[in-house]
Design a protein around this nucleic acid. Sequence first.
DNA 1: CCACTTATTGTACAGATGTTCATTAACTAC
DNA 2: GTAGTTAATGAACATCTGTACAATAAGTGG
Lengths: 207, 207
Amino acid sequence: MSNNNTGIDRRIRKSKKTLKESLISLMQTKDFREISITDIVELADLNRGTFYKHYQYKEELLEEIMEDVIADLILSYREPYKNGDTFTINELTASVIKIFEHVANYKNIYTLVLKSNALPKLHDRICNELKKLPLEDLEDYRPNPKINAELASSYQAYAILGMIIEWVNTGFTYSADYMAEQLLEIITNRPVNAVFKINHTFNDGQK
Amino acid sequence: MSNNNTGIDRRIRKSKKTLKESLISLMQTKDFREISITDIVELADLNRGTFYKHYQYKEELLEEIMEDVIADLILSYREPYKNGDTFTINELTASVIKIFEHVANYKNIYTLVLKSNALPKLHDRICNELKKLPLEDLEDYRPNPKINAELASSYQAYAILGMIIEWVNTGFTYSADYMAEQLLEIITNRPVNAVFKINHTFNDGQK
DNA sequence: CCACTTATTGTACAGATGTTCATTAACTAC
DNA sequence: GTAGTTAATGAACATCTGTACAATAAGTGG
């Protein structure tokens, strides 16, 4: 077949790259809603037809920008698992830290995109990735059989997204390490004193 | 001043009502993206200028539709606190159940709107309401001072949203009671066996 | 280098958007 | 009921959207 390394025609690669740069550039000073496709192609110095050749609407362009970011998110949380082939808690903790470090690395784009409210699907997209994290391992080694795994997984993923969104809203006033600490703290801090129906047996097992 | 009961001119009330009905009607068969403002006003049999008199764009119309729904959400979780003036765990549990019942009551609109991906702000809007729930009370009566309240609050609110979204995605195959049970189960199920750094002391306090 | 493929361009067009304005109709307060 | 306010209407306009098509340029594989 063709394509030297990326798998695409160089012209496509260039056009897409320019379009992405133009949109991000425009988003620095203009609301996403106010930016027209005409604006984007004019700044990119490309024909409007070129835009429509690759994207249906500007949201799709922004989605692709975020896919690049999410690709790095995936790399980030997988990194700690690269070397070791056996699972250890430290690797998981490291993985959690890496997620927040990743967000901090891309804080400008996360702030821009999350505050622009331009991508309704982004939350779900990020959470679908977070669900792939073996966070259940953080939970309990003898999982509660009553708990619906799908619900718990969605619960956990959106919970982390919630922390990230709060982080973004504060303008990244905390460090990535602090965020990871907080997550671990929240997850491990259980209401041993909860008043209502406690059907579980709390023991201190193989601690 | 004017306005008999709602605080608005009857013409406005009628126009807005008709516009909302038209949009919801169109969303039954058409993707939100595909629906034009012209479509909406034609079905509503109103002048296009009337739309622009009240809304900037169709997302704003849908937002107002959801504000009506959220108004009921607020009523729902507050209901258990109406009569009793003292706080009890049962009221809180009841409040949690009410939230899921509310979503079940509006399952059509929630499904429609969440799957349409038309309202980026909706997640945040719902979570801001959920944050007002005293869910920390479900957590621990002697709260962990290390935990950042804002982060934990956002964590918890988005977590519940995550459950709701998963619920919507399954097509409401569970009952509202089951959802409430699951939430309480997930919250109370703590990793007493967690291997990594446990700086907390687990005691069974004033149980 | 050549033959082939395909991305980009320029142009055109129907429809939608967002705004303006004068006119008409409906509502409110009294 | 009347006077005053304001929402709804219809028309008009510049701009943007989404699509189509033929011509051209750029890239690919051999």
